[in-house]
């Protein structure tokens, strides 16, 4: 890892989580299952659009506190 500039642990974890969540959302299985009339893929996209800003703001404020 010494070949990379250091990233704060919280930020790295948030990025990894969001990329993993996105990858998980695009699994083909979620296209065919529906909940409440909406494909699970749709619910996962809604969740991504809500989790993404909340998580990033949380990481931002946590970083500010630690500074």
């Amino acid at each position: 890892m010494k070949e990379f500039f250091a990233m704060r642990r919280g930020e790295a974890a948030a990025l990894l989580f969001l990329v993993a969540f996105s990858t998980f959302s695009f699994l083909p299985v979620w296209r065919d299952i529906e909940i409440g009339g909406i494909a699970v893929f749709g619910w996962l996209m809604i969740a991504l659009m809500l989790i993404s800003p909340v998580l990033t703001l949380f990481v931002f404020f946590r970083g500010q506190r630690m500074e």
Binding site: M7, E11, A14, L15, L18, S22, R31, I38, A39, F41, G42, M45, I46, L48, M49, S52, P53, L55, T56, V59, F60
Partner: peptide
């Protein structure tokens, strides 16, 4: 085209913001 496919397009931009903010 339906709600799920449309949200996929715009969720991409929403994911782009944390990438921009952190990276």
């Amino acid at each position: 085209q339906g709600i799920p496919a449309t949200l996929a397009l715009f969720a991409g931009a929403v994911l782009g913001f944390p990438l921009a903010s952190i990276l």
